[in-house]
């Protein structure tokens, strides 16, 4: 028995191979996400103008030293509006992902722990929610509770729960059947303790992967709702709203606003989905 030694004594993987794992595309995505986040956080410091105040005489200006990206139909500085727009876009998506991830994890743990009837019942309820397209549910919420970012965000979060819950349930169920969970159960620990202390930490990778992927979808859905005039209300800067407001200018030959805001959405969503894919890939590779 003395022949048995530690396979790798205390050599735990740190973040050294992070760059290798991300790859060039992943690094680019991570940098983009970092830049957007910094822009959103420090928007008041970086912005050259007040995003909501313009002057009519300066409308539809091209890029210049004064206005880095030009101005919109009301003479507001586009660069500053894009910076502030990142705030609402990121914040809304973050709240959706947080609520949907949290709600999905709770439902998954409950279904996995109790199994049988509870699992079957929750499955039916989720099927029911699946029947409603995300945007339809959000529009329904607006019809009942009125327009605004908060209403739309909560409605979207609820409509995202079935997706996260379904994925996490299957992972939690697999953990539930492993002997370490039964060993903990044998000690007379309560279901809550076993679920939170033992099962939850082991499904965190899947929670994070889902969050990164959903973040992109949530940004698109929130932008779409703002575009429809249901989410963020003018004059607040928001990428989706900016695409919508730039529509008329576009027809008049001034496409900057719609194109810039649209590009921001596309680039941000792409970056988040690349990172989500990497997280999912690591998980799949790490398990055999």
């Amino acid at each position: 028995m003395s022949a048995e030694t530690l396979a790798r004594p205390a050599a735990r993987r740190r973040g050294g191979d992070l760059a290798v794992w991300l790859g060039p595309l992943g690094i680019a995505a991570a940098v983009i996400i970092a830049l957007i986040t910094l822009a959103a956080l420090f928007a008041p410091l970086i912005a050259t103008h007040d995003p909501d105040i313009g002057s009519v005489v300066q409308r539809y200006q091209g890029p210049s030293a004064e206005h880095l990206l030009g101005t919109d139909q009301s003479g507001r500085d586009l660069f500053s509006r894009l910076l502030y727009g990142a705030r609402t876009s990121l914040f809304g998506a973050a709240v959706v992902v947080l609520l949907a991830g949290g709600g999905g994890a709770v439902l998954a743990l409950v279904a996995a722990w109790f199994g049988r009837n509870v699992d079957a019942f929750l499955g039916r309820v989720l099927d029911l929610l699946f029947a409603f397209p995300n945007l339809l549910l959000a529009i329904l919420a607006v019809a009942v509770f009125g327009t605004g970012l908060a209403q739309v965000t909560i409605a979207l979060a609820i409509s995202y729960v079935p997706y996260t819950a379904r994925v996490l349930r299957s992972v939690a169920l697999r953990e539930r059947r492993l002997a370490y969970v039964q060993a903990a159960e044998l000690q007379g620990l309560s279901g809550l303790v076993v679920s939170l202390r033992h099962i939850l930490p082991n499904i965190v990778p899947q929670i994070l992967t889902g969050a990164a992927i959903n973040f992109g979808y949530a940004m698109i859905d929130l932008a779409a709702l703002s575009f429809l005039g249901l989410g963020v209300q003018p004059p607040t800067a928001d990428w989706g709203l900016m695409v919508s407001q730039g529509k008329d200018s576009l027809l008049q030959g001034y496409p900057q606003q719609s194109m810039l805001a649209g590009t921001c959405i596309v680039v941000a969503v792409a970056a988040f989905s690349v990172i989500g894919e990497r997280l999912g890939g690591r998980k799949a590779g790490g398990r055999a």
């Binding site: 492993l178 002997a179 370490y180 039964q182 060993a183 903990a184 033992h198 930490p201 082991n202």
Partner: peptide, 10 residues
Amino acid sequence: FQDPSGSLNR
């Protein structure tokens, strides 16, 4: 339990 790797929380 039978499965040594499964019976410990990784």
